[in-house]
Design a protein around this nucleic acid. Structure first.
Lengths: 214, 214
DNA sequence: TTGATTATTCATACGACGTAAGTATAGGGT
DNA sequence: ACCCTATACTTACGTCGTATGAATAATCAA
């Protein structure tokens, strides 16, 4: 696991390989356990070697977030409705973030404006304009939808270490005397769980947005 | 600034005072600069003294998030519409989070179910039920709204260090040839800025949610 | 082939971190 | 007046990010 290599001998390492190792490490052990030494061990190199690929840990995290987003697949159907486009965008973003929930604290602490995100936004604006939305409104709309998805994943129990267990425990332990309505709502769970609730909220937002078509 | 005190001599410190110091430090220097030693200096005590009030740094962060939420003021008008209640809830939550944006990474990494949040939820469910929402739907609705607010603040430029400057730079630098619609949207800014966009999205969600009234 | 140059990795070291363990003392209860 | 305990401090250990510089493999010029 640690580096067994004489000085100067190439490790055959690439920036991408390091980032893949980082994703592996974070998914397995959590963001707090991502240190230069441990990441070095993960990819078979000493800590300082990583500084050939990243100026510092901050830059590594930048690359990590960018790397995860680069793996996103946004399938764009031709001639789809604006709802279909937004739905595809939101679901894709959700899946991307949910694939590595431990990264959310890193995701939200750096600006999200990348060439890729600009291309997606431009495409979305075109779709929404075709449907009759004013351009400015269309951008607000995409932003709002993005914020919802980010919040949805960020507050998701899987983002918190042991979050699922904690939420389960605290909610099932709710006193029906003190909080009768919460108890009732918990007692009638949705069949499909979180996914269904996400979609329901999505559709509600679409209905609300539709009023902005001029 | 550092501790000048003989052992045993009380520092007149309380849990609350420590948390207030922590909020001050985080607001001033950012979450990354919150260390036990620096926090000790902030409140006039050595680092280890803080362990009389918190089991470890994790517990300190728990307390910090809870403390910030305890400062939230949720004004509840009597006989208001369900929209008015949700609006008040969302704006209050937004203001609370936006008051200490540096804390967002800490906020999203711990479960949000507290006695206080349960009370708010129960009250909200009552209001929504009066308006005709099924209980389960009402809870989904409050959750979705909460997620939107969290995402809104988490992605807000003020959450990122130097985020405002970074976003400004990257957006005004957009090539109108490559991204004409984005350029156009930026060229026609909203008068009231982020606040207005937040409210607009809120109202859209309300319109969409209204369809769930049985 | 050989020698110099460059690219790459590793070793060492420093200050800051969280915190375990132990020590000293002030202030309150008897 | 005494002791007890709550409170605060000191020291120390392992880990962190990373500056600096040494060592060597890889590459290229002759």
């Amino acid at each position: 696991m640690t580096a067994n290599r004489t000085r100067g001998q190439k490790a055959g390492l690439t920036r991408e390989a390091v980032l893949e190792g980082a994703v592996r490490l974070v998914d397995r052990d959590g963001l707090a356990k991502l240190s230069m030494r441990r990441l070095g061990a993960e990819v078979g190199v000493e800590a300082m070697t990583l500084y050939n690929y990243f100026a510092n840990k901050e830059a590594l995290l930048d690359g990590l977030v960018e790397h995860v987003f680069s793996l996103a697949t946004l399938s764009l159907e031709e001639d789809a409705s604006w709802q279909a486009w937004l739905r595809g965008y939101a679901r894709s973003l959700r899946a991307t973030l949910l694939a590595h929930p431990s990264l959310m604290p890193a995701v939200i602490t750096r600006p999200a404006v990348t060439p890729q995100s600009l291309r997606v936004m431009e495409y979305g604006l075109r779709e929404l304009r075709k449907a009759g939305f004013p351009t400015r409104t269309a951008m607000d709309l995409v932003y709002s939808l993005t914020e919802f998805v980010v919040g949805h994943v960020a507050t998701s129990p899987t983002t918190v270490p042991d979050g699922a267990a904690a939420k389960e425990e605290r909610l099932t332990g709710v006193d029906p005397q003190e909080f009768p309505l919460i108890a009732e709502a918990i007692g009638t769970p949705r069949p499909q769980g979180e996914d269904a609730r996400f979609d329901v909220a999505l559709e509600a937002m679409f209905r609300g947005f539709a009023d902005f078509i001029r």
